[in-house]
Amino acid sequence: MSDRLDIAYSPCPNDTFVFHAWAHGMVPGAPELDVTFADIDVTNGMAERGEFDVLKVSYAVLPWVLDEYALLPCGGALGRGCGPLVLTREPGVSLAGRTVAVPSERSTAYLLFRLWAAAAVPGGVGEVVVLPFHEIMPAVRDGRVDAGLVIHEARFTYQEYGLHALADMGEHWETTTGLPIPLGAIVAKRSLGPARLRELAAAARTSVRMAWDDPAASRAYVLEHAQEMDPAVADQHIGLYVNEFTADLGEAGYAAVRGLLTRAAGEGLVPPLGRDALAFA
Rank of each mutant, 00 (worst) to 15 (best):
R190W: 03
P28M: 02
G239F: 02
A185W: 07
P84D: 10
R80S: 09
R155C: 00
A217S: 15
D41A: 13
L62C: 06
P103C: 05
F245V: 08
S58I: 00
L131Y: 15
A185N: 10
K56M: 15
S191N: 04
T88W: 00
H172P: 00
V18N: 05
A185D: 07
G184W: 00
Q227M: 15
G253R: 00
A279S: 15
A256P: 12
G124P: 07
R198Y: 09
G250L: 06
E251S: 12
S207R: 05
A154V: 02
P132C: 12
E48C: 12
W212I: 04
R141L: 05
A203V: 04
A226G: 03
G25T: 09
E160W: 10
V100N: 10
L66G: 07
Q227C: 12
D248L: 14
D248N: 15
V128C: 08
D67R: 09
S218K: 01
A211V: 06
A265N: 08
L200Q: 06
Q227T: 09
S104H: 05
A96Q: 14
D230I: 00
L166P: 14
P215W: 09
A147L: 04
V54W: 05
A167K: 00
D276K: 11
A139I: 08
R141I: 05
L66M: 09
F280N: 03
V42G: 04
E51V: 12
S191H: 11
T43D: 05
R190P: 06
L240E: 11
A211T: 06
E105Q: 14
V129Y: 04
V145K: 04
G193W: 07
A77R: 03
